[in-house]
Design a binder for these strands. Sequence first.
DNA 1: ACCGCCGGGTGCC
DNA 2: ACCGCCGGGTGCC
Length: 940
Amino acid sequence: MSWIRRRSGWTSPAEVDLFIARFESSAESLSQALRAAAASSAAAAAAETDADTVPFGQLQGTVVGLRYYTGVVNPGEMVALVRQPQNPYDRNAVMVANMDGSQVGHIKKELAAAMAFIMDNNLAKVEGVVPYRNNAFTMPVSLSFWGAEEDKPAFTQRMAQHGFKMNSGGMSTSNGAQGGRPPAKKPVTIPLSAEELKNAFDNLFDGLMESKEGEKEAAELVSTPLLPHQKQALSWMCACENGSTLPPFWEQRGALYYNTLTCFSAKDRPQRVRGGILADDMGLGKTLTTIALILTNFHQGKPLPVQRCTGESSVSYLSARSLPCEKPNLKTKNILWVMPIKQNKKCLTIRTCTSAQREHYTHLCVCVCQETTVLLEDLDFAAALSGSTSSTKPKNKRSAKKAVPEDEELSARATLIICPLSVLSNWLDQFEQHVRADVQPNVYLYYGPERNRSTSFLASQDVVLTTYNVLAADHANKSPLHAVSWLRVVLDEGHVIRNPNTQMAKAVLHLKAQRRWILSGTPIQNSVKDMWMLLAFLQLKPFDIKEWWNRVIQRPVTQGDRAGLLNLQTLVRCITLRRTKSSTVNGRPLVALPKKTVCVEQVELTPQERAEYELARLEGQSTVSRYVAEGSVMSNYADVLAILMRLRQHCCHPDLLAKITSDLTGVATTPAELRQRLVEKLRAVLASGSDEECSVCLESVRLPVITHCAHVYCRPCIAQVVASEREMARCPLCRSDLTISQLVEVPPEELEGEEDGARCERWRTSSKVEALLGNLLRLRSEDHSIKCLVVSQFTRFLSILETPLREQGFSFVRLDGTLSQKRRAQVIQDFQSSAPDSPVIMLLSLKAGGVGLNLTAASHVFLMEPAWNPAAEEQCIDRCHRLGQTRKVFVTKFIVKDSVEENMVKIQRRKQDLVEKAFGSKNTDRKTSRIDDIRALMEL
DNA sequence: ACCGCCGGGTGCC
DNA sequence: ACCGCCGGGTGCC
């Protein structure tokens, strides 16, 4: 995996491509190769977090061979440096390329010889800026070197061997635009403090509403009236799709387009992405707005032509505004494709139809032509419709010329929506719910083994809906989804693909589309880094290439450069619309959500429970304090988690504790014992809900395995990491040594056996169970119609709760991660139903169902125990406290008094304040604070 | 490239 | 002439 630094033997396919490209002199593949090389080398070099990257110094070099290449460079422009180990004249060759990947020249050979070693061994990352141009044959280039502190001596020595000495002073972290001539004026700026940076970053997505456009009505196909903020979003989205404004930081200068950050200039107009990020808070109706967009903005503000499914002979136009005549009295066949018809856009309509549809168009056109005079002027339109190439009128030159380059663009009809599995059914429901009953856009669910893989079929749909996993799986193996030119691709919950190294991310980037949207309630989760994937998907030039992103935004921002942050803010502002529940439109709140009341209910343990708890606590305390004293907390993290887990389980119910309680503190004497202990740790970690996401693929872990440092991954994912590293594989999360043989998984039969074991036991209650029952019974006596969510991270706790609920005659459903998609949809539908015999309680696993899950039928939420991640709790609450909720929402958090749970709550709060989002802090700080957390938890 | 370098032509002044 | 000097050819890696 490329984020783990390679020290030797580094080869990438891109190098081979570069070689081929060079000698076939294919500009297209060169530029592709450069992209690949830039992306992969940047990824490799960025393996160390940017906080660890320090400037090594600067050097003035020479670019030679300019006259052999076409790449043009402006004064101050940034250039890319790419190794060319296959160059037949010099294995040390270093190519210089400008922003669109055109080769500019080579680094002069003496310097290249020094740089080749540095670059091949990843001792440093090199960046170039051309300060000025002197002649047609060579030009100067100012090279800056960056790398890990510990590599600096080796780097300096190596350069010195070749007779190069660094200028250490005054490395500009931002672009070279202002640093024109060699003695660049060094602007005196105070770097942002970590605190300022964190604040600025947290607020990055705030206030992006401002005065974005007006409002736009949805097409008539949309049956649900849009709220004002949704009309604004629709208006903004249509403007984004139809407009052709330049991307941020580009300006027109004469005949050229100039990028003010990189100083690159291009002859061709850089396309601003036709799309953006809709980052509205959860519950503001991103799905509805997107459906409205699909139906409303097929092309240039015309609605999507949609098949009517009525058998009536009367034809009502789906949008009268888009038609030249209001309501022609037509008698046609019962199925009719209605296309927006407008003189100057007629080509568009023709190109969008299949041959079967063309029949209908022809039919329509003939009817229209017979009955109205308006369209009679459109003879070439009519001719085109009927498939005739000749025309009674000479072809309009402009439209004829236009039709050719737009040909491919016009062939696109379908919108591809990619979402997490958990919201798939929501999309289908919403299409059903928000589209007029008498029309039926073709929405195809591309999912399951029977999915139709025909490209032409998919391309002819109005909407194709699929999941990230299906897309990634297909991508590996001639994907039909990648063969279609989509009109529009929508990534729902787009933040799930923040790691560009994943298969999902790669699959998403390879989709072909004219318009691209990201929907996300939380567009950035942790760091600026996450932004890149979004920009790459949106193809926001030039930041879709990682090198430019890293140089111009990411590194400057992480190193506290104010200009960098400002640029990032501008960038985000240009492509994002975000409103929160507390935003206002014209002074009024967007949506009036009912009040939410959160209260903590303290639970007292019975004397017997308390005695058992104290026993476990003292035992755990002695173990952990030993680790603290030894300084071995982190390497024994799994043990620590397991100890905490046992305490947390004590707080909920004694039967949650694993029955096999081999001494965690003892020393394993046999491999079998060691294995057994790791199995327990894995089970504990999985059950804790603390880290069920695999950090490699970012999906919920499948085939979970645990490393001895207690990090959980999918087995195939971590196997890939190990395989790609051959020697010295390291845990991607904590960089501990890692081998395949140390990975441990839960034997499947044990999972089964455990369930059975739990069920066989005679049921007993616990203080927490009683606390919950008390609340549920009280509520039922007050109001029969109240529905409740009962949330726990421990699915076994949910199982335990089933017994008393059944005894008390509550009708309930259960939603956890084990449900199939079909079953899950059924459960949600049952629970949401207002039928008198519908379930009143849902037992909900905290990690079941991602965001977007709609459980507004419930108005009371019981959180059975605190979670490590308060955001997970919030998300859970938001499943019922969201648009569509009519009752006041009450949230009850059960916390056992004088227990690890109380300590967890304290740490939760502190985490939220400090650790979670503080980036730019050193690893050691984070580690220290984690150890501090553990001490606090164990009351040490 | 208004350079540097190479190598062939040339050779008192 | 095993040099110096001249001037044309030439020029990325």
